[in-house]
Nucleic acid binder design. Structure first.
Length: 558
RNA sequence: UGCCCGAUAGUAUAAUGGUAGUACGACAGAUUUUGGUUCUGUUUGUCUUGGUUCGAAUCCAGGUCGGGCAACCA
């Protein structure tokens, strides 16, 4: 009976449909995908969609995925990025079949170019970039042939060899495909195949002074590796005819390109160019600033690989432009952290509570590390006469639906006693400095008065036993949903309050053993993780995400 | 004003000629020693106009709107 239901739940996305169709028709025995980053920046959450798609597709259908660095432009690329990209993919939980570089194929690509020249399908052009742009025409007007277009095959062969041999300076000559200067698709108007760059390449060093363009490298690299499904983003759709043209003319393995819509996330930006600006202009502290949508930033913020993979799964994939609500990402991380995070009590903005009728020196109480854990373990929490509670958990004149502490009212201290507020002490300026309360004996867990109902349970710490920690609270980086589509400079929409630092929050002593790979829920506050800036004598916590907060919602309603 | 891609609740995503479904959100309620979690319920949608058909989100035609394309970037 569940057969049909299950079938429905597992509806395929359009890429899975293509793969199943190809496999079913026997076009391939097994599939091979690839993730092809250019090592010129850090990976971001948008890349994780592509990573999950490429690796996920291969995993699902028993195939493999190559990691291939698209390193055809030596001036923008660097090994720093190669290393970070590999680390990020591994952290996300994927392993590639082969680590490859487009630069591995420079020799073969050169031979492909020679073959095209020999077939009369490529020529060396001496025009300047301005002249080439001039003759290219516009989307609505056809282009015109270059004066160098009709050079003989022999001359082209010689000139191209000279280009490769370093006889010319940057920009003096290019190699172009001879296709159709009046093609309605701009990419087919004799695209440039090779340009001269006397630049040091991070892998091939100074072996080459000519470098292939993206269009002449990507498809051929796919083909060399026998990639069956080359999945990329929508902006490459107009490149596909060219991708196919090269494969056809070169008579090489027919890889096929398929395109999907890139991920856009609300309240952030997703282009490397913009992210680089944020770093360079010091709007953030680096590529791994916890407010950045980079994988490194999300990791430092406390996101888990599982949550990002779940997110990629949930957003699905299609060819229409999209703007995903960041709320969905937050849902995914909360869902995971709720299951794994250790509960701890931390007071951010303290107000002192003195239990006037508490006569013991101290006592040790117990509290769950994680109530969601089927095998719940417990930690010890010291309790004493003087405590801190959150300032916002007390109101002298409470509004209607305020359930917390107020004069004459009772609340429960989590895993401890019920207390009642008897007296409010203020300084000369009228600020509340201390709350004099009485506790209800026998009201702690297991006690004879433990079942008395109170409206709220709040967190607390014993002042004498508290440890301090710096807490960094993050908010969205931008004030608007889609900064990239807004008028003017996207940086004008940066949220000035995206970081709030609390130099000293008061935590229960159990938190002093915090570990870098551990996740914590500060009760009623949110999920936190230790930041890499922490030292032996100073703990620094990043807020990954807040808890859902219906009380805040209620307050907003007025 | 050329070529290409796209349009299903607020946001995503299914339904592949036959009951418009799911998730997130929102709203309401139950449970709760976290105003958390969990559970239950409610809410809102096929861009438009024609056509084909017994039947159209789906096929066809026109329109509208959104996006991409004129780097010696990828």
């Amino acid at each position: 009976m569940n057969e049909i239901k299950k079938e429905e739940e597992k509806s395929l996305n359009f890429l899975e449909e293509i793969v199943e169709e190809d496999l079913g028709a026997g076009r391939y025995k097994t599939i091979l995908t690839r993730f092809p980053p250019e090592p010129n920046g850090y990976l971001h959450i948008g890349h994780s969609k592509s990573i999950c798609l490429n690796f996920g597709l291969a995993q699902k259908y028993g195939g493999k995925t190559n990691l291939r660095f698209d390193d055809t432009n030596p001036v923008t690329e660097d090994v720093e990025y190669v290393d970070s990209i590999k680390a990020d993919i591994r952290w996300l939980g994927f392993e590639w079949a082969n680590e490859l570089y487009a630069s591995d194929y420079f020799g073969q690509l050169y031979q492909f170019a020679v073959k095209l020249i020999e077939k009369g399908l490529a020529y060396v052009d001496d025009s300047s970039s301005e002249q080439i742009a001039q003759l290219k025409g516009t989307p609505t007007e056809p282009g015109k042939d270059s004066p160098y277009r009709s050079r003989s095959i022999a001359e082209n062969l010689q000139l191209f060899a000279d280009m490769q041999a370093g006889k010319y300076k940057d920009g003096e000559k290019v190699l172009r495909a001879k296709i159709d200067m009046s093609a309605p698709n701009m990419h087919m108007r004799d695209p440039i195949l090779y340009r001269i760059k006397h630049a040091h390449h991070h892998r091939t060093g100074d072996a080459w002074c000519i470098y292939p363009m993206y269009d002449f490298a990507h498809g051929q690299s796919d083909s060399i590796e026998h990639i069956t499904h080359s999945i990329c983003t929508l902006e490459f759709v107009p490149h596909r005819p060219l991708y196919d043209w090269f494969i056809d003319k070169l008579e090489i393995f027919p890889s096929h390109q398929y395109e999907f819509a890139r991920l856009n996330l609300s309240y952030t930006v997703m282009s490397k160019r913009k992210l680089l600006q944020l770093v360079n202009d010091r709007h953030v502290t680096g590529w791994d600033d916890p407010r950045m949508p980079t994988i490194a930033g999300l990791r430092r913020r406390g996101y888990t690989p599982e949550s990002i993979r779940t997110f990629a799964e949930k957003i699905g994939v299609q060819k229409r432009d999209n703007l995903i609500e960041v709320g969905l990402l937050e849902f995914c991380i909360r869902e995971h952290l709720n299951r794994i995070a250790l509960r701890r009590m931390v007071v951010f903005d303290p107000v002192k509570v003195v239990l006037t009728n508490y006569t013991e020196d101290e006592e040790i109480l117990k509290s769950e590390n994680n109530p969601e854990d089927p095998e719940t373990t417990y930690r010890e929490i010291p309790f004493s006469r003087e405590l801190y509670i959150e300032r916002e958990d007390f109101m002298e004149v409470p509004p209607k639906k305020f359930f917390r502490l107020s004069p004459g009212q009772k609340v429960r201290l989590k895993s401890a006693y019920i207390i009642q507020c008897d007296e409010v002490i203020k300084d000369a300026a009228g600020n509340i400095t201390e709350l004099r309360c009485s506790y209800l004996p026998g009201s702690k867990s297991g006690g004879e008065n433990a079942n008395i109902k109170v409206q709220a349970t709040i967190h607390w710490v014993s002042i004498r036993h508290a440890v301090t920690a710096e807490v960094r609270l993050y908010d969205r980086l931008f004030k608007v949903e889609n900064p990239a589509s807004e008028e003017g400079d996207f940086k004008d929409y940066i949220n000035p309050d995206s970081l709030q630092v609390l130099p000293a929050a008061y935590a229960e002593p159990a938190l002093s053993h915090a570990k870098f790979d551990e996740r914590y829920q500060f009760l009623r506050k949110g999920y936190f993780t230790l930041d890499k800036d922490s030292s032996e004598d100073k703990m620094i916590f990043n807020r990954t995400v807040t808890l859902r907060d219906n009380w805040a919602k209620e307050q907003k309603k007025g």
